[in-house]
């Protein structure tokens, strides 16, 4: 369970990214974080594992407050939190296996990781996870030899190999095409349900969020302006989150996307027939 209490982040430049953000994520709950760019979504999830230092407030993961932990304790806390990135953020020149095993770095000594001699259980888990995300045949390939969707699957396997108690997901589908985006989202949701894993998902694509999330939090200019189920996300609410003009533009964009996708599907069906 994650409690975020009165979280505030002000950057050195004076920009206020987050002001007094509070919410709680229950076990197994997948929360979508929506809002226009610059609303503080990225700062918020980076504050949780302190890749960005919060200015004030508390972040409690199953009781321990992460704010104010020293370097060693912070590393122990970080290994309990898996993170999945927008541009996959795999180490491109390492093999897929090394990327998945790198999720165990917080658990092994430097020499074990340097010589790539991980405990048998870690290797077994890595293979199991690669099998789960459908990439077991690619273990020895280099990460830069994979496609976008495959790389994001490796990113998921890496985060899961940490055996995390919480998943932070930063725009998982921003660099993927619509079809792969849906596959990745479905995989994420399934995995969270299997493991009863709470997750916070930054997502810019509102229809996608409505389709997959159990709960949605709307951020605007660093403040929580909406917190509820996807059904409660009405036109009015979305207008408050995104502002009237942007929302209309986004909705049109989404409709065009959907239309294009339907056309493409029809075309495929015609060609197949």
């Amino acid at each position: 369970m994650l409690n975020v209490e009165h979280l505030t982040k002000t950057y050195k430049t004076g920009d206020k990214a987050l002001s007094d953000v509070s919410f709680t994520v229950e076990k197994g709950q997948v929360v979508g974080l929506i809002g226009p760019s610059g609303a503080g979504k990225s700062s918020l999830i980076r504050c949780v594992n302190r890749l960005v230092e919060p200015t004030s407030g508390a972040i409690k993961l199953n009781g321990t407050d992460l704010v104010g932990l020293g370097a060693g304790d912070l590393r122990r806390a970080r290994r309990r939190i898996g993170m999945i990135f927008q541009e996959y953020a795999l180490v491109e020149r390492l093999t897929v296996m090394e990327n998945v095993l790198s999720g165990r770095l917080g658990y092994v000594s430097f020499w074990q990781s340097f010589s790539r001699r991980y405990p048998g259980t870690d290797i077994e888990r890595a293979y199991r996870l690669l099998d789960r995300v459908g990439l077991i045949d690619h273990a020895d390939k280099r990460a830069d030899a994979l496609s976008g969707g495959q790389r994001q699957r490796v990113g998921i396997a890496r985060a899961l190999s940490q055996e995390p108690e919480l998943l932070l997901v930063d725009e998982p589908t921003a660099s993927l095409d619509p079809k792969t985006s849906r596959q990745i989202m479905r995989l994420l949701i399934e995995i969270c349900q299997e493991r009863d894993l709470p997750a916070i998902v930054n997502i810019h694509d509102v229809p996608l969020a409505q389709q997959f999330m159990q709960r949605i939090i709307g951020l605007r200019a660093g403040q929580v302006v909406f917190d509820g189920t996807p059904d409660q996300l009405t036109e009015d609410v979305l207008t408050t989150i995104y502002g009237a003009e942007d929302w209309t533009a986004m909705r049109q964009g989404a409709q065009e996307d959907a239309q294009a996708e339907r056309d493409a599907a029809r075309e495929m069906a015609r060609l197949g027939a």
């Binding site: 890749l51 970080r78 993170m83 990135f85 165990r104």
Partner: peptide, 10 residues
Amino acid sequence: QIEAIRATGA
């Protein structure tokens, strides 16, 4: 890539 490795608790 550096951020991702840091996030694993390395």
